[in-house]
Write a protein that binds this DNA or RNA. Structure first.
Length: 617
RNA sequence: GCCGGGAUAGCUCAGCGGUAGAGCAGUCGAUUCGUAAUCGACUGGUCGUGGGUUCAAAUCCCAUUCCCGGCUCCA
């Protein structure tokens, strides 16, 4: 064994080893003969962390079996931020159970029980787990094709597992059980509901603490909490679940975003539309929505004995706009944009603040173009999307191409042509992407862009979808150079996705502290005492007449109290006026973060505000 | 939709069989104040909704609506 390797092992920095590219238990070291390519896996690496967490999941299952012998174990993988294990238990785990399990886990860890790997035949394994009463493991075994399987034993607890694992339980330095939840066996809602325990583990206590702090930060930024605190939106039980009521502060934010969106769309060669919220049921039959989207649509309503349907999408209306005139190839591409409010049925358990609602406004557009124009149009949409997103400070993305789902319309050939157009456009823009197989919409493949927010969390907003099918269903055409009728291709796209979700994400991204151009109140004027009310009012009027959103606070309160109120409302600028300011005919500006106190002339302040707003800083 | 937890004043929450509470907010009064909470008084609740058990229910039981954490599904 190389000296360096021996040293690392001694210092307990290794938890697994890669031999000729294959991850193995550390115990494989004793079989090495020296000519293998090896790599030490420490818990700091992605692979190492996964092994650590998976091992902690085993230890948790061990603890659960010790405390609740009747419970059956199922599966327990490592996940993005930790691990979970699903158990079949008649009554759910309680908070107290979690504490007991943690305690038992600490005991197991202290014993430094080795993880021992054994390879046995599948039949042997089935017999073993049958004897242990672990029917879920037997079910898994029956689905495994290999003749040999591996099991791991640690302190008497045996689990079917591919491995690898940490050498012994004592290597777990920092873990915490986080929550309990119901989860279906194999993720299928027709199966039995199991009891899942979520937990996490890290190489060190500090890293665990950092993660717990992150969870706290996430809680603090929760848009539902901030939305209430900052009076941005409300969901009323009296109105109905998943239906958003924009309060004045939220309405201003939304209006500002809408204005920006419309202006930029006009600049980018789009034409703006408004279309109705309902349409005859027959329209939805023709579009294919009734066949392929029915479960998300509300029941139709009767008007003069004809069925009408609340719209779940805007596309059929935009098709009507296309059809309102004869189109020539000279007209294409045609770009129709609308902030279109749609209604979709969402199961009650999935609703979530602004992020998942039943009525929402898509920043929708449909581009009609020729086959030759398709790729360039997609590139333009990509550029436009990234411009809009970067305005809000989103500069990191994960891009996915979703391919044909099980339920689809149109020919496979068309699907493939559309998919390759999407790939080609991303390639030309040097944008790396991943494939999300089978996740396309029923009418075509799509590019989804997931943005990373200030906490590095991913959110799906933008979507660009090619559609060969709806143009066909509505038989829309254009007259080509050759004088013949041709069928245009349609691109559906939404950049922010929906205003509701996007603003929800913005609240969390900015932690409620909106940049000046979006802030509901941009400047709050506060007087030191009653003597300065007139001057404060004068400043207020001056700022207001210059188009700023200003609040005047001339209450009989101490300045400290007023500053506290404004800070809690996350107002970008506070203007403080007292004796000094009146005398010098100036103002003192305090930024939201408490820095940059300065006495300046009002004209100078107005100039800097305008600069900040125009540049959307 | 499924599993579990919850709903008490505008907000945050305590009370968990025996007369509905606190802080903040609001109103009124005093204070006239220089960078994150001045003091006092007052107001405010059919304890989510509907049934039931009990001498007595915010509290226990059942149903229901909505919310929360997950699962499944998604802009």
């Amino acid at each position: 064994m190389p000296e360096e390797l021996e040293k690392i092992l001694k210092e307990n920095q290794a938890i697994a080893i890669k031999i000729n590219g294959e991850i193995k238990d550390l115990s494989y070291v004793s079989y090495l003969n020296g000519d293998e390519e090896i790599e030490i896996i420490s818990p700091q690496t992605k692979e190492g962390l996964e092994i650590l967490r998976h091992s902690v999941a085993h230890i948790m299952a061990h603890a659960v079996k010790d405390l609740f012998p009747d419970v059956k174990v199922t599966i327990g993988p490592a996940i993005e931020d930790g691990f979970y294990y699903d158990f079949d238990k008649d009554t759910p785990f309680t908070e107290e159970d979690l504490q007991k399990i943690e305690k038992r886990m600490h005991e197991i860890i202290k014993l430094k029980q080795p993880f021992i790997r054994k390879e046995i035949s599948k039949d042997e394994a089935i017999k073993l787990f049958e004897a242990l009463g672990e029917s879920y493991k037997v079910e898994i075994l029956n689905e495994i094709k290999d003749e040999k399987v591996s099991i791991y034993e640690e302190g008497g607890f045996i689990d079917l597992c591919r491995g690898p694992h940490i050498p012994h339980t004592g290597m777990v330095k920092a873990f915490k059980l986080l929550s309990v939840a119901g989860a279906y066996w194999k993720g299928d809602e027709r199966n039995k509901m199991l009891q899942r325990i979520y937990g996490t583990a890290f190489p060190t206590k500090e890293e665990l603490q950092d993660y717990l702090n992150f969870l706290e930060e996430v809680k603090k930024r929760d848009h539902r909490r901030l939305g209430k605190q900052l009076r941005i939106f409300e969901i009323s039980e009296e109105v109905g679940p998943g239906l958003i009521i924009w309060l004045p502060n939220g309405a201003i934010i939304r209006k500002t975003i809408e204005d920006f969106w419309k202006d930029e769309h006009l600049k980018a060669g789009y034409q703006l539309l408004y279309t109705p919220h309902i349409a005859k049921l027959d329209l939805w039959k023709k579009s294919g929505h009734l066949d392929f989207y029915r479960e998300n649509m509300y029941s139709p309503m009767d008007i003069d004995e004809i069925s009408y349907q609340l719209k779940p999408m805007n596309c059929p209306f935009h098709i009507q706009v296309y059809k309102s005139e004869l189109r020539s190839y000279r007209d294409l591409p045609l770009r129709f944009a609308e902030l279109g409010t749609v209604y979709r049925y969402e199961r009650s358990g999935v609703l979530h603040g602004l992020l998942r609602v039943r009525g929402f406004t898509q920043d929708d557009a449909h581009i009609f173009c020729t086959e030759e124009q398709l790729e360039e149009e997609i590139q333009k949409v990509l550029d436009f999307t990234l411009f809009i997103l970067s305005t809000f400070g989103f500069n990191l993305y994960d891009i996915y191409i979703s391919t044909r789902p099980e339920k689809y319309v149109g020919s496979i050939e068309n699907w493939e042509r559309a998919t390759s157009a999407l790939k080609e456009a991303l390639k030309k823009r040097d944008l790396p992407y991943q494939i999300d197989p089978g996740e396309g919409v029923f009418y075509g493949p799509k590019i989804d862009i997931k943005i990373k927010d200030a906490l590095n969390r991913s959110w799906q907003c933008s979507t660009i979808q090619v559609d060969f099918n709806i143009p066909e269903r509505f038989e829309i055409t254009y007259r080509g150079k050759d004088g013949k009728e041709h069928r245009p291709i349609m691109i559906h796209r939404a950049l922010m996705g929906s205003l509701e979700r996007f603003i929800g994400i913005l609240i969390e991204h900015y932690a409620g502290a909106f940049p000046l151009w979006l802030a509901p109140v941009q400047v709050e004027i506060m007087s030191i005492s009653e003597k300065h009310v007139d001057y404060a009012t004068k400043i207020y009027n001056q700022l207001r007449s210059n188009g700023f959103r200003v609040k005047l606070n001339i209450e009989n309160e101490k300045i400290g109290y007023k500053i506290r109120q404004a800070s809690m409302n996350k107002i970008p600028y506070m203007v403080i006026v007292g004796e000094k300011e009146v005398e010098k005919n100036a103002i003192t500006v305090r930024k939201r973060d408490g820095k940059n106190l300065e006495l300046i002339k009002i004209e100078e302040f107005i100039e800097s505000l305008n600069d900040e707003i125009i540049n959307r800083k």
